[in-house]
Simulated scan of single mutants.
Amino acid sequence: MTETIAADGANMRKLIDADLQDTLDEEIEMELDDHRLQTLQGETNARDADEGMDRQQYFQELLRLQGELVKLQDWVQHQKLKVVVIFEGRDSAGKGGVIKRITQRLNPRICRVAALPAPNERERTQWYFQRYATHLPAGGEIVLFDRSWYNRAGVERVMGFCTEDQVEEFFRTVPEFERMLVRSGIILVKYWFSITDEEQQFRFMMRIHDPLKQWKLSPMDVQSRARWEQYTKAKEDMLHRTHIPEAPWWVVEAVDKKRARLNCISHLLTQIPYGDVTHPSVTLPDRIHDPAYRRDHIPEEMFVPKVY
């Protein structure tokens, strides 16, 4: 009996270790994606060979912060809070990377991402904020906007998709719109991811030469590269005119992707006071065995081929 218990314990330990390793591998896979093209000939020559922060430290801190995000999620759900986090920045600034790390361990029913496409013909005739308002959270939800209503102050303005009168109306309206959201009980946090001219050039070149990332580089992105200075002026105007006490902007220095992710998540955790939520203990019920039950045979052709 003792030997059986010991063997069962050893097997369970192996299963637990394997599960923990799988959790770590998920993050490593994402990191490999970030650095996969560093060996491409010629593309890294123009960039400083700064290795950034220690990878082991990065993983340890990321997993710790993700554990805190789970606690925050429980608190938001328990207290029926409404949270909106806006991620803005130039193309390739790293918004998607930090959003992935925030949502990686969270419940998608509680924390979801809103990444809206260009407005259709009907949406272009609506009140500008209308299509964004439909994605706002109910109690117990977190919504991460991967770009937001600030498209009007950025890409729409620079690319000529709206008039200057429409831009001015946006700047008149958005402070009151956001104050209204805050008065309604929404916790609103706004991040701008900042990268240098040289860093964007490097990241765009990576996307051009990477078949797994080429989908990220749209014709609009290429145009944005050519209009760097126009985007800079638009960004500066936007930050100046929409940085309000009720919903201030927070700038994330994002040239170093690892530090940017950790700094952003760490800061986000400070913006929403949260505590531990006590959960009832879970006890698995005893397995009910029916002596008359027999499993049906599943034909071999129904199984996925064992290629690996």
Rank of each mutant, 00 (worst) to 15 (best):
L15E: 10
I16H: 03
I16P: 03
D17Q: 14
D19K: 12
D19S: 09
D19A: 10
D19L: 01
Q21D: 06
D22E: 03
D22G: 01
D25M: 08
E26L: 13
M30W: 00
M30A: 11
L32A: 06
D33R: 04
D33Q: 12
D34A: 14
H35A: 09
H35S: 14
Q38I: 09
Q41C: 05
Q41N: 09
G42F: 06
E43V: 15
T44S: 13
N45Q: 14
N45W: 07
A46F: 10
A46E: 06
A46H: 05
A46S: 13
A46G: 14
R47T: 10
R47I: 15
D48I: 15
D50R: 13
G52Y: 08
G52I: 08
M53F: 03
M53G: 10
R55A: 08
Q57E: 12
Q57Y: 02
Y58E: 02
Q60E: 05
L62G: 01
L62Q: 04
L65A: 01
L65K: 01
L65M: 09
Q66A: 08
G67V: 00
G67S: 06
E68A: 11
E68C: 05
E68V: 03
V70I: 12
K71E: 07
K71S: 09
D74H: 09
V76F: 00
Q77C: 05
Q77P: 05
Q77T: 10
H78Y: 04
H78D: 13
K80Q: 13
K82P: 03
V83L: 13
V83A: 05
V84F: 02
I86G: 02
I86F: 02
I86D: 02
F87V: 01
F87A: 04
F87C: 03
E88F: 09
R90F: 05
R90I: 04
R90Q: 09
D91P: 07
D91H: 12
S92I: 02
K95H: 07
K95V: 03
K95F: 08
G97E: 04
V98H: 04
V98I: 08
K100F: 07
I102C: 06
Q104A: 14
R105Q: 12
R105W: 00
L106Y: 05
N107F: 08
P108L: 15
R109H: 14
C111Q: 00
R112L: 11
V113A: 13
A114E: 06
A115G: 08
L116E: 12
L116M: 15
L116H: 11
A118P: 09
P119W: 03
P119N: 12
N120R: 11
E121S: 15
E121Q: 15
E123W: 06
E123K: 11
E123V: 13
Q126Y: 15
Y128A: 07
Q130P: 04
R131V: 11
